[in-house]
Amino acid sequence: MKKILIAAVFASFAISTVYADTVRMGTEGAYMPYNGIDDNGQFIGFEIDLGNELCKRANLDCAWVKNDWDSIIPNLKGGNYDTIIAGMSITEERMKEIDFTRPYTMPDPSTYVTLSGASVNLKSGVIAAQTGTIQASYIVDSGATLVEFATPDETIAAVRNGEADAVLADDAFLKPFVEESGGELSFAGDSVFIGGGVGMGIRKSDSSLKDKFNSAINSMCDDGSLNSLITEWEISETFPDCK
């Protein structure tokens, strides 16, 4: 009797998990236009639109999860969500720990922003960046003095109040700040290409999910919807080999 009961309990577990295959999508929610939270507390941004469309094409039931940038990869590996879709550039370093889908943006240029009219030596000055970003390691390698802040907001504030000479971040993130600063901020120097485009991070042990998303991204590439999303959110260049 007891055995049957236990079996029944497990069976009910099994049934409840067979049809509902929710994929949890981890994002930061603080990096517009990639991902953000609007005034109604809803997720918005390029990656939210993209992710929802990908899930639809891959026939997956998706749920969005917010996670701090700092612990976004450990929580993926610990299974708190199944993908990272948070403006994460594909790098060698990260590839050692997690897998990536094919990139869904072209390599996004990173740009320096300074106070307008300031003459800054980008190779030896004081450059601000968010802790743990590819830009932070780039600044160290470039020989400049790195100042690290926990949030992207603080990096821009640091340039405004004179703590740092310049900030280095993704072009798409900085552009609205420069445009709306009323001439206070401006781009400086050449853009640099650091990462290999932005992709979705997926556990190495989860290759079937990676395949599903890869084919969904490919299908969006083929019918032109990927490029139109990129244009709509002013992310980066469009893919020349997509429609």
């Binding site: 577990f13 099994a14 409840s16 998990t17 509902a20 929710t22 994929v23 949890r24 039931d61 749920a63 590996k77 610990g78 299974g79 199944d82 720990e97 556990r203 190495k204 042990s205 989860d206």
Partner: peptide
């Protein structure tokens, strides 16, 4: 699996659904 922590779907807390 490597450094991935993988438990079966129904052992997840809370369930992914």
């Amino acid at each position: 699996q490597g450094t991935d922590f993988v438990v079966c779907k129904s052992a997840k807390l809370p369930l992914s659904t």
